[in-house]
Design a protein around this nucleic acid. Structure first.
Length: 1105
RNA sequence: GGGCCUGUAGCUCAGAUGGUUAGAGCGCAUCCCUGAUAAGGAUGAGGCCGGAGGUUCAAGUCCUCCCAGGCCCA
């Protein structure tokens, strides 16, 4: 090669096709050099590098609908094994929020994944229609204050409004569902208000009734006075709010026995409104109580609480067990309420009394406490209730008549105070149950209710839970297991209107005679009328009565409707109308393989689904359950109107794209924990993942198009014959395919997302960047490799980001596949792991290469030598270097722009410092606690000597006077050159660069600088990548002149110059002299001192571009 | 009061089976690279990995207790 200089990658690149015989581009005549012929048209059209993702998504939505892609994906899998998914119906009340996208993204991604894997995954939407939330919304619309308003308005009309409200809200859910690309069949959606659905629910209730598990009972239960209905425990569970109540200590003078007139019982309560109905005071039989004298009086309190309640300054007058106080009478706190004839207001014994707080004496008001009721019943005490079902004190009461129960506290406390029976009042902050819908504080209130005896099947529920796969696992025996273990009977009935009517008819002559009805057909039989067309809702069903031959009395329906949670828990069979209809379909799809909701459903749908399934079929209805954390606003708080931090879902998707929002939900942070969603986070997803992926596809199509590449006519070399980088990309794809599949099988979208994002980054920023020149050249191996990788990657990403992947599929993948390939990625199969492509060694080697490149760049930075300046050589110390293929070593040299690479350990020992460190993992595993002594000995040893011995395999260190041999892998050797080099090392690797510059190297660097300037000018003046140019230059600096002259052919090749005109000013782009023939495009290029250049497009040389 | 979750850089979060220089992104500063990219890379500032004990040759990682926040329940 004579005196010519090597240039690293710069000149190592072969000339482009058509330019390997450049003729005489230096003639100064300006005549055009040869150019390549226009490429034949291939099947690919270039995708634009810029893309408006939300706009693209809308087009794709239209295409999916026009081409019926979802329906075809179901048809295509018909007859294959079923993977059953149950849609938990959203309550069709209120508009959907951004958090609804979360669960719906998960409900979409796994069915898509399983479908691609070859399962048949029917997906049927559902809407939860009944319940208090709907009633409340309608009440608000109508300006109602409570049940009397509804009764006046008419139940039929009211329920019609409820139905209309549900239909209205379903539309907005449907819109969200469509926009986010959640594939679920809404045309066959189940509605819990449909008569067929209700009949199924009835059927199941009849099964439960027949088993004796559906019973009426009078119990104290949480009750919302505003809504006028009892709440089930899982409803109460949703409504705790913190509030501050008065907490009062009240003195009740003893009126019988030894201490009559001499001491006061001291009680403590946070519900002063229950004091007017005080009926008794409970003490624990086995706790010691004392009579204690203080300045304020003489009191009876539990001994462990004396100091806490009365202070240090007390005199104990007596000490006795709680048992001894039984039936001692006292003066009740208020005389407001009439008590029936008979004994009351004395001390009773109860085991549930504790000495954790209060006084150890517990005020009893049986109408308002479940335990109070049980205890007082035991003594035959009356149940006195001065509060009406709307939560107000009866109007005729003095002092508090007509007051709302909680609002009466102040007046009652004041009255106690004025009479001197208030011992102490404190503000007490605690969480208190509120109505989860209207936020009214609940009362515990004695009322008749229908219950399902779930506590009777608790063991069965625990056993079913044992079989269930929970994600995350800790829910199973944590939050959910606790709930099951503390199971109480399901308070099923509601004294409301818009709900599934409880299908029980009672004989009005003998209330013990009950009939449960399982269908309209049964009801028709009982009444002798055809009721098949009856709307089973109230009030129509209430009018249906019947008599039975030989029985007195008429059967009338009990008035209650049921908890809407029971409706949704019945969906496995009720969605089919089973067993009255579609019995086989139901049986074929029970239980479900997969359900998913947010964590608030633990005691909601997750429970009711399992409970109904176990009650009716003795088997839970789901196998795998995903339990998601909540989505929070950017400020880390719940989104709420009140805080003004709401992100509306549709505008959010219209701004960033549904794919971005989906990706965030699936892979941004752990799905199990609460996550903050915001614009910043989403635009990062767009930039880092979606656009990088898109641009890789766009890059591919650009060169597939430019080169007219057609895999059918341009066979690529066999994979094993392709360049290492191609094989690396394919090997990485194979590994990623396997790992992503494993992650999704385990419902781990976060892990899968991390793998995919990492691969997208590797592909774009290593494979494509390193391979660009081969794409410019239309190398079939490179094009085929990238096409194959995009194919696999697009399939892997399709369940996550269904929009952009389908666009890439149809435009960058499909044109290169055979004729029978599906026209949507969502009809394609899940990729199999290409075992032949697997090459873990190569993957590890490329990882090493990239580490070395990083270190080399770091070394350049610290020496302030820019990358465009070629350097003579780099030396490397790295385990595994020796076995690195020359092709990969060339990669490092190219990236670092060095002409030569050598191994440091081969260098002269005098130039190198060595340091040694023990690999603790290796040595620790073998030698255990000796490892520290070995490390010390290694540090103390002469590093050079020990290294030599270590490399020879004979290294030994002395520990406690005994020799310990070191094995291969025990030490990490770090070598560092001493002088005249710039060095970077880390993780046992070292890269050193020779900084000595020769004039030749400097000139090579200058040329590269010039190339960059021209490329920038090409880009900024709007030239296409394949446009050819002419170049004019003048330079004052001798080095630059010489550099440009010396390297003219390389320069011309790099910038696609068909002609170079030294010492010539060229056309002035600002003047009118730029010939039309040059396409009107010309640009000045300024940069290096004293160098002036102009470029202009070579006229008429290329068709089209 | 009980159960569960969380606590790692200014912010958002990674950190299998314990292994000795704790990482990434965003933001900031200074550079570099760029024929696809809204990208990419390097360097710097920024960490008693919530705290205290313990187990271990070795703890961000395992155990116990405590603190703070969140959720769920009494």
């Amino acid at each position: 090669m004579g005196g010519s200089l090597p240039y690293g990658c710069f000149c190592a690149v072969p000339a482009r096709p058509g330019e390997d015989a450049p003729g005489d581009p230096f003639g100064g005549s300006g005549r055009m050099g040869p150019v390549s012929a226009p490429a034949p048209a291939g099947p690919f059209a270039a995708l634009p590098p810029q893309v408006d993702l939300p706009a693209m998504e809308k087009q794709i939505l239209q295409r999916w609908e026009a081409d019926k892609v979802f329906a075809r994906s179901l048809e295509a899998s018909a007859g294959k094994p079923q993977w059953v998914f149950y849609e938990g119906p959203p309550t069709a009340n209120g508009r959907p929020g951004t958090h609804h996208i979360e669960a719906r993204a998960f409900k979409d991604v796994f069915p898509r994944f399983k479908t691609m894997q070859g399962w048949h995954v029917p997906r049927r939407a559902g809407w939860d229609c009944h319940g208090l939330p709907v009633e409340i919304a309608v009440e608000q619309e109508l300006g109602f204050a409570g049940k009397p308003d509804i009764e006046r308005y008419g139940i039929a009309e009211f329920n019609a409004r409820c139905r209309e409200s549900v239909e209205r809200h379903v539309d907005s859910f449907a819109e969200l569902t469509r926009r986010m690309g959640y594939w679920v069949d809404m045309s066959t959606a189940y509605w819990t208000m449909d008569p067929a659905y209700i009949e199924s629910v009835w059927w199941s209730l009849k099964q439960i009734f027949d088993k004796g598990l559906l019973v009426e009972d009078h119990r104290v239960a949480p009750y919302c006075p505003r809504c006028g209905t009892g709440l089930s425990d899982h409803e109460v569970a949703q409504g705790y709010e913190t509030l501050t109540d008065p907490s009062v200590y009240v003195r009740l003078p003893v009126t019988s026995g030894e201490w009559a007139g001499k001491a006061d019982l001291l009680i403590w309560t946070t519900t002063p409104w229950t004091l007017p109905s005080n009926t008794a005071v409970a003490v624990h039989p086995d706790v010691t109580y004392v009579v204690a004298r203080t300045d304020a009086g003489t009191f009876v309190v539990a001994e462990p609480l004396v100091t806490a309640v009365l202070g240090e300054d007390v005199e104990i007058l007596a000490r006795t067990s709680g048992r001894d106080w039984e039936r001692v009478h006292y003066q009740r706190p208020f005389e407001l309420v009439e008590f029936p004839e008979g004994d009351a207001h004395y001390v009773v014994l109860a085991d549930y009394v504790t000495t954790d707080d209060g006084t150890g004496l517990v005020h009893q008001s049986p109408a308002f406490g479940a335990e109070d009721l049980a205890v007082c019943r035991g003594y035959g005490l009356p149940v006195v209730n001065p509060i009406d079902p709307t939560g107000h004190f009866l109007p005729e009461l003095p002092l508090v008549g007509g007051h709302f129960f909680k609002a009466a506290d102040a007046a009652l406390v004041e009255d106690l105070q004025s009479r001197g029976v208030l011992f102490r009042e404190l503000r007490y902050e605690h969480s208190y149950p509120h109505c989860w819908r209207c936020h009214t504080p609940l009362m515990y209130y004695a009322q008749p209710s229908w219950y399902i005896r779930t506590s009777a099947i608790k063991d069965r529920l625990l056993a079913e839970n044992e079989k269930t796969h929970w994600h995350p696992e800790n829910i199973q025996w944590g939050r959910y297991g606790d709930w099951l273990n503390n199971n109480v009977d399901w308070a099923l009935s509601r004294d409301r209107y818009w709900g599934t009517p409880l299908p029980i008819w009672r004989n009005d002559a003998d209330p013990s005679k009950l009939i449960a009805v399982g269908s309209l057909a049964e009801l028709s039989e009982l009444t002798g009328r055809d009721l098949a067309g009856l709307d089973p809702h109230r009030p129509f069903i209430d009018d249906v009565t019947f008599t039975r031959p030989g029985e007195e009395g008429t059967y009338r329906r009990v008035r209650q409707v049921i908890d809407a949670w029971y409706d949704s828990g019945s969906m496995p069979f009720a969605q089919w109308g089973a067993p009255h209809r579609n019995k086989e379909k139901f049986e074929a799809s029970y239980p479900a393989q997969f359900i998913c909701e947010a964590i608030d459903q633990t005691r909601g749908w997750f429970y009711t689904l399992m409970a109904v399934g176990t009650l009716v079929f003795d088997e839970s209805s789901y196998e795998n359950v995903l339990c998601l954390g909540h989505i929070l606003a950017e400020d880390g708080r719940k989104m709420s109107k009140h805080l003004g931090n709401i992100l509306e879902p549709i505008p959010l998707m219209d701004r960033h794209g549904a794919d971005a929002v989906r990706w965030f939900m699936l892979a941004g942070g752990s799905p199990w924990s609460a996550r903050r969603v915001g614009h910043e986070t989403l635009s990062e997803v767009v930039r880092k993942v979606l656009l990088t992926y898109w641009n890789t596809a766009s890059f591919f199509t650009l060169y597939a198009d430019t080169n007219g590449w057609d895999p059918a006519s341009t066979p690529a070399p066999a994979r094993a014959e392709r360049p290492l980088l191609d094989r690396w990309a394919l090997a990485t794809l194979a590994a990623v395919t396997e790992d992503v599949t494993t992650a999704l099988e385990d419902f781990d979208t976060q892990g899968a997302g991390r793998l995919l994002a990492g691969f997208v980054d590797d592909l774009s920023n290593w494979y494509v960047r390193r391979s660009r020149r081969r794409f410019w050249d239309g190398d079939p191996a490179a094009l085929a490799t990238l096409h194959e990788v995009l194919d696999g990657l697009t399939r892997l990403m399709a369940p996550f980001t269904p929009f952009v992947t389908d666009e890439v599929w149809t435009r960058a993948v499909l044109p290169g596949l055979g004729g029978d390939a599906p026209d949507s990625v969502h009809l394609a199969s899940w990729p199999a792991v290409d075992e032949d492509a697997r090459d873990d060694e190569l993957v590890a080697q490329v990882t090493l290469v990239r580490r070395l490149v990083e270190l080399g760049r770091s070394a350049r930075t610290s020496a302030k030598v820019r990358t465009r300046q070629p350097l003579a050589r780099a030396v490397v110390a790295a385990p595994g270097w020796a076995s690195l293929p020359a092709e990969l070593i060339a990669e490092v040299a190219d990236e670092l722009n060095v002409l030569d690479m050598a191994e440091l350990s081969g260098a002269d020992g005098a130039l190198v410092d060595v340091s040694l460190k023990v690999d603790f993992r290796a040595v620790g595993r073998r030698l255990g606690k000796q490892v520290q002594a070995v490390a010390k000995a290694v540090a103390a040893a002469d590093a050079a000597e020990l290294t030599a011995a270590y490399r020879a395999g004979t290294a030994t260190v002395q520990v406690d006077g005994a020799p310990v041999p070191l094995e291969d892998g025990d030490l990490i050797v770090t070598e560092t050159p001493r002088e005249g080099w710039t060095v970077a090392s880390g993780g046992g690797l070292t890269v050193a660069l020779d900084l000595a510059l020769t004039p030749e190297l400097e000139r090579a660097g200058l040329v590269r600088e010039v190339v960059r300037l021209i490329q920038e000018a090409r880009k900024s003046s709007g030239l296409e990548v394949s446009d050819r140019i002419e170049l004019w230059w003048t330079a004052e600096d001798e080095q630059i002149r010489r550099a440009l002259t010396e390297h003219e052919s390389q320069l011309a090749a790099e910038v696609l110059a068909t002609a170079v005109h030294p010492d010539s000013e060229g056309p002035d782009p600002r003047s009118a002299t730029v010939p039309e023939a040059l396409g009107g495009r010309a640009a000045r290029v300024d940069g290096l001192p004293g160098l002036r250049m102009s470029i202009a497009r070579t006229g008429g040389s290329l068709a089209g571009r």
